[in-house]
Amino acid sequence: MIRERRPSRPTRGATLNGESNRFNLPQTETDGDWLDAREEIDGAAAPLRTTVTVERSRTIISRNASPDVPFDRSINPYRGCEHGCIYCFARPSHAFHDLSPGLDFESRLFAKPDAAALLRAELRKPGYEVRPMALGTNTDPYQPIERDWRITRQVLEVLAETDHPVTITTKSDRVLRDLDLLGAMAAKGLAAVCVSVTSLDPKIAGTVEPRAPHPERRLAAVRRLADAGVPVYVSIAPVIPAVTDHEIEHLIERAAEAGAGHAFFIPVRLPWEVAPLFRAWLDEHFPDRAGKVMAMIQSIRGGRDNDPGFHTRMKGSGPWADLLRTRFHIACRKHGLNRERVTLRCDLFRAPAGPQGELF
């Protein structure tokens, strides 16, 4: 169910607040305060402030056994993401908190300040087997609130102390703040960073991912990471047909010029409540081609808005998906990307000291 559409808000991704009843949660209603009717009275969208709630987790490492995901464990310091990317596949997860996948997801955030302490405890468990830890798999670990909360930094400090391998995916050049840790870890073969750049057009980037840093700042971060010896991937994810797909070759060229050694792409995915939010966003920002975009997406996704199947969900299928892959591979060969595989070391790990050891 989607609420009635309201005027779009500058610097926010979703044009409306979506509702989810997949978990039999009650529908959210206004409380009757006059501010709830401000848009109807004034005819303008009310300012939307970001709020952060502390979440006290019992564990911090999430596990998965997905056959098409290149990691089996991850840490997400935050729930929700202020970057506001309209296509974010993590939006439906906000329903677990009885919040919407729309504007709530990008404005009502959750932080996990105990993450580093929980990580120490989990790494200390007997029998822990080392594999690369992935940061940024659900929401961005370097979204704006990381500036003050510094939870990602604290997690990295634990991983660096224990020589635990880590991969990071982010849309933010704020990752450079932790270059001291990442550079030292990369020198040991323990770190790699993936920077997501979906469009070089500031106007498109400003609507599809409104609170993420400018694409040029992200490419500048790629250069600084590469110069510091950190293996860098550029993620062109997602590719949106008839909106960003024309940029594939140029994005790969710019990634190579910035020093990236690797790149990958994923066609846009629209699981669960993301699809109606995305459709509303198209109607707002690309009304001239909304129908064409959705028709192309459905051709890639077996006639549906989304294909959840393993092995096909990350690649798509059909002629349009084949064409995107062909263009991507030709461009990567031309610019020398993906020639060697990055393998992080797992043999240097040292379990963190226990409480007694930390006293001496």
Results as ranks from 00 to 15, higher is better:
S20A: 11
L225E: 04
V268F: 06
V166R: 00
L109R: 02
F278H: 10
W34S: 11
A228G: 04
V232E: 03
A220K: 10
T28Q: 13
L182T: 02
V222Q: 05
C88A: 08
H97V: 00
M1N: 07
G43F: 08
N17E: 15
C194P: 00
L25A: 09
A117K: 10
F310L: 13
N76A: 12
L159G: 01
V158T: 01
R124F: 02
P202T: 05
R211D: 03
R147W: 06
A117L: 07
A191L: 06
M314A: 14
G316S: 08
A226W: 05
P144R: 00
D33G: 14
L109N: 09
A44F: 15
S199C: 06
G18T: 07
D227T: 01
M296Q: 14
F278E: 09
G261T: 13
R91F: 03
E257C: 09
R73M: 14
N338V: 02
T244R: 01
L179I: 15
P271W: 11
A237M: 05
A290V: 08
M133G: 02
R350Y: 03
R313G: 03
Q143W: 03
H94M: 14
T50N: 13
K292L: 15
P319M: 05
E249S: 12
K112G: 10
R49D: 14
A44S: 14
H250Y: 09
E340T: 12
T137K: 06
M294I: 14
P202L: 01
T244Q: 01
G291Q: 01
R254F: 01
G309L: 13
